[in-house]
Write a protein that binds this DNA or RNA. Structure first.
Lengths: 163, 163
DNA sequence: CAGGATCAGTCTCACGCGCAACCAATTTAT
DNA sequence: ATAAATTGGTTGCGCGTGAGACTGATCCTG
């Protein structure tokens, strides 16, 4: 790409390189792709599958609906990821006697082993990424993400997000 | 979702809410979706189409390859977006006499009008989002994104990214 | 100045996704 | 009590995508 030639336009300049949504997408795509290598190539997990496992690793029992909202996924995406994981023996469905519509999901031992294998690598990756910032910056950065996320929610309140 | 129950696991804790890649994806998805409403619903543009237009709004002439790398898209994605935009009369292909392999792409007047309509709205959206941060924080935040992006590149150097 | 590597862009294929219709269980209203 | 509305989850469908093969053009190297 050439140097950004000013467009023959009357509109105020929109320079993607300085446009926040663009920067966010770029950074998030880069880190996600790098991280995906861990669980995709080495553990044969898709992104939704990893999100299901990550959620259940953190909260041992959850319904598909919980997982969908927590992982910002469509419920059909979760449903398919769950089916695949159950078929692989990494997840178990347990009927909920109090509400037969929902099913409680739980990692099997094999599922937890995979989770336990991925977590240290994911944390190590995060740590390597974070070396770009000093400790104070890290706190600041996460705090600012929180603020921006809250603001984004308030700007599009009714939106059910998909990643 | 319930309160994060500690998992019965020996692995170090991975709490998604505090995991940087997760936070980045969440924020980036939220802002992208909100922004997409502008150009998707009101101008009937897909995300790749908007990226093509945004790039050409900024650098009036570019090849498909330029646009792909600039917008972090696969070349086939760009190819299809370009075809659709040409069909709609928003883009023009011009053969390059010096290299018959590539084609120079340029917005038509209609294309530029759409670009000029979207830009102020996109900038207004960014501004509204940015109100969550004070001016100094904004500079800091963008600088930290740059640092993290550079670090992410160095951690996965050979990776050709897709958003 | 040939022949092989490289490059721009298109096209086919298979797949994963979001959507929306759907089913079954449960809650609410009448 | 019963019908209507709501909710959790699944499934069929259509579409857009990424991977990668392929075509034609250009460049490199001997």
């Amino acid at each position: 790409m050439d140097a950004p030639t000013p467009a023959s336009s009357s509109a105020p300049a929109l320079t993607l390189e300085r446009f926040l949504p663009y920067r966010l997408v770029a950074l998030s795509a880069r880190t996600s792709n790098a991280l995906a290598r861990i669980y995709a190539e080495r553990f044969e997990l898709t992104i939704p599958q990893w999100r299901v496992i990550a959620t259940l690793g953190q909260s041992p029992v959850a319904t598909a609906r919980d997982i969908a909202s927590h992982g910002m996924m469509h419920k059909s995406t979760v449903s398919r990821a769950v089916s695949a994981l159950v078929a692989r023996g990494l997840l178990r469905k347990e009927p909920n006697a109090h509400d037969m519509r929902e099913e409680h999901l739980r990692l099997t031992d094999a599922g937890r082993r995979i989770y336990d294998s991925i977590v240290p690598e994911a944390l190590a990756f995060e740590a390597r990424l974070m070396t770009a910032l000093d400790p104070q910056e890290r706190r600041l950065f996460l705090a600012m993400i929180d603020k921006l996320d809250a603001q984004a929610r308030s700007l599009a309140p009714d939106m059910e997000i998909e990643a």
